[in-house]
Structure formats: structure tokens, C-alpha cells
């Protein structure tokens, strides 16, 4: 089964293709560590990221968003599937099975930014050391040249180069996140994986950071995989949005379509749950019962069926495949064609 995700029409070829990616963790029991089951943290996920575009990834905790991002970088080795990075020099490289030399090369082009800027910066290193480290590790620049590059990067993210000899504690949360972004950009990557980059920041700082990220994207033609649980933020930054539920992608579509005409009941439930900053809106939340199932023991069939208000007998034993419901919009639901689901503004 080959899935073509032409979510947005492109002249370009994709930058990154995630194909049938799986990450299963064995659950062992007893003295002999017999494997009694698997936690399917990422279960057959296929997604495509285009140059200069942002793929937003939403889902609740335990849905596999972060595992997916780490598997893309091969920080975690995937169980199965491939991650094809279209490199300018090497051509398509499967990150999941690349040899060390190719992997090192490709990883320069993929960088990560994490949620908490307080724990992702070494408190005993100066900003100069922090941002210059990737340059030194990859033998791109050292000494004076590295210092110049760091100054340039600091300016790029809106910090004053004079601050480069300071330690991270001297900076606020928003400034630290800028330092993290500067470090990620040191090697001129094509793709940046942003894992909840603004969740730890205050609203006013969040807006500055989001503007910075969008600005850098258009200046440097960066692609983003933007992971967040905040549906408002994801809508603002993304060209395409994928929704994950217990390890699987349940819907992927161009942002407007996904928010205005969702085709999966879980997407609809998420959209109805967001507290909206508008007191005049009627509070008509779709009551979805229960909580996210344990990924070690998910319900059979469609994982969402026990909570789904539209569930039918078939949902309990047959997992629906991800299929194209409207042009560019993919959903994994048996009844996507029949259901008339509400968009974010209909609640």
C-alpha cells in the first residue's frame, strides 16, 4: 500500500518522506524477560514534508508525536519503515537504514528544538560555546571563524552578539529558546523538528517566538515539523496538519480544510474541546467520554471507537486505513464520506 500525500500542490519534490514508520517497544515480563506484548508508540505512520513548508503534528500526550520526531532523526532506531531525506548532494537517503557516514551528513540537515529551553542548554557553557559546538563537532569552523558565525546567528535570531560570552542563566525563557534556535541553525539545516517549542513560554513571548520562526522559515527556506498540543498555534504556523491518536495518524490535510471540514471524528472532538477566547460563543462541546487508551493495550479496530460518538460495529474489529477523502485530505475512518463533521467555527 503506497500512500501519496499530495496535501498541498507542489512543483517541488518532497524534502522528507516518512513511509510506514513503526516504533514498537517490547513489554517484557518475568525473570527471563519474555516479551508479552508491544507498545506501538508509532504504528505505521506515513507523512511528507515539502521544502519551505510546515507540517504541524497534533495529538494528546502518549499519541507518539515525540517518538515520531526522534525516529525521524534516528535518535530512536525505528522498528520498521523508512525515512527518506532528499539530500542535495547524496540524493535520497533512508535515515532509518543509512550507514554512519551518510547519517552524519544527513543529520546536519535536520535539527531539533525541544520544549524546555531551561534543560536543553548546558548551564556551564557560554552561549558562544553552545552555538559553536555543532560547528566544531562537524569541523566547519573554529576559533575566530566560529565566533563570527555565532555572532551572525545571534543576530539572525534577534539577540545581541555582545551577549555571546554570557551563560544561559542570564537569559529569559524566550531568549533561551532563541539561543536553542540559533544552535539548530548553525549548520544551515533544511529541516527543523520543533517539539513543543513554545509550550513553556508566556503568551506574549510565544507570539515573538512564533513570528521569529516564521520569519526564519521564509528567509532560509526552512521546512518545519512542528509538534504541539496547542491547536491554535499549530493552525497559525502550519501548511499541512497531521493528527495522531495512539500511535497512528488519523487525519492529515491542508490546515484550513482540517480545521474547517474535518473528516475524522477525533479531529472534530479535538476542535470542539479547545477553549476559545470568545465568551459569546455557545459552548457546545462534543462530549467524548473517557480518556486516551493505554498504548500498551489499545482497543482493537479503530483505536478511537470506544470514545467515538459515531462508532458502528465494524469500528470495533476493523482498523480503517488512511485514505484520501477529499483531494489532499486523508482520514482513517470508515465513515468519513457519510459523516458531516463540524469545523472549529461551528462550535
Amino acid at each position: 500500500m503506497e500512500i501519496q500525500l499530495n496535501a498541498v500542490p507542489h512543483a517541488d519534490r518532497p524534502l522528507l518522506e516518512i513511509l510506514h514508520l513503526k516504533k514498537h517497544y517490547p513489554v517484557t515480563r518475568g525473570l527471563l524477560k519474555r516479551t508479552v506484548g508491544y507498545v506501538k508508540a508509532v504504528d505505521d505512520v506515513s507523512l511528507t514534508i515539502y521544502p519551505g513548508q510546515t507540517l504541524g503534528l497534533v495529538g494528546e500526550s502518549g499519541s507518539g508525536k515525540t517518538t515520531l520526531a526522534h525516529s525521524v532523526m534516528r535518535g530512536i532506531t525505528p522498528t520498521a519503515g523508512s525515512v527518506i531525506f532528499h539530500d542535495d548532494h547524496l540524493g535520497p537517503v533512508d535515515v532509518a537504514s543509512a550507514d554512519p557516514a551518510a547519517l552524519r551528513h544527513v543529520r546536519r540537515n535536520m535539527q531539533m528544538v525541544f520544549q524546555d529551553p531551561f534543560s536543553s542548554l548546558n548551564p556551564r557553557m557560554t552561549v558562544l560555546d553552545i552555538i559553536a559546538e555543532p560547528l566544531q563537532v562537524n569541523q566547519i569552523a573554529k576559533g575566530k571563524a566560529a565566533q563570527e558565525r555565532v555572532a551572525e546567528l545571534l543576530q539572525l535570531v534577534g539577540l545581541r552578539p555582545e551577549y555571546m560570552r554570557r551563560f544561559p542563566h542570564a537569559f529569559s525563557g524566550g531568549q533561551r529558546q532563541r539561543i536553542v534556535v540559533a544552535r539548530a541553525l548553525a549548520l544551515n539545516p533544511r529541516l527543523v523538528l520543533l517539539d513543543e517549542p513554545t509550550s513553556a513560554l508566556d503568551v506574549s513571548i510565544q507570539a515573538q517566538t512564533l513570528n521569529l520562526l516564521k520569519d526564519l522559515q521564509s528567509r532560509l527556506n526552512l521546512s518545519y515539523l512542528f509538534i504541539s498540543h496547542d491547536l491554535g498555534v499549530v493552525e497559525h504556523v502550519s501548511d499541512t496538519v497531521a493528527v495522531m491518536y495512539v500511535g497512528r495518524v488519523v487525519e492529515v490535510a491542508p490546515t484550513r480544510k482540517l480545521y474547517q471540514q474535518p473528516k475524522h471524528p477525533y479531529t472534530e472532538a479535538l476542535l470542539s474541546s479547545i477553549p476559545k477566547p470568545d465568551p459569546t460563543r455557545k459552548k457546545r462541546r462534543i462530549a467524548i467520554a473517557g480518556e486516551i487508551p493505554n498504548p500498551a493495550n489499545p482497543p482493537p479496530g479503530c483505536h478511537f471507537h470506544p470514545r467515538c460518538p459515531y462508532a458502528q460495529p465494524i469500528c470495533a474489529h476493523e482498523a480503517p486505513p488512511l485514505r484520501e477523502v477529499t483531494p489532499g485530505q486523508f482520514a482513517a475512518c470508515h465513515f468519513s464520506d457519510e459523516l458531516n463533521l463540524k469545523g472549529v467555527n461551528d462550535f
Binding site: 503568551v203 491547536l231 491554535g232 498555534v233 493552525e235 490546515t255 480545521y259 479547545i274 477566547p277 472549529v344
Partner: peptide
């Protein structure tokens, strides 16, 4: 403060 939050549904 009100203007700095992305308003969901109004991309």
C-alpha cells in the same frame, strides 16, 4: 495580550 494569541479558526 489578546492580540498576541493565535485565534483558532481564523488563520
Amino acid at each position: 495580550l489578546l492580540e498576541s494569541i493565535p485565534k483558532v479558526g481564523h488563520k
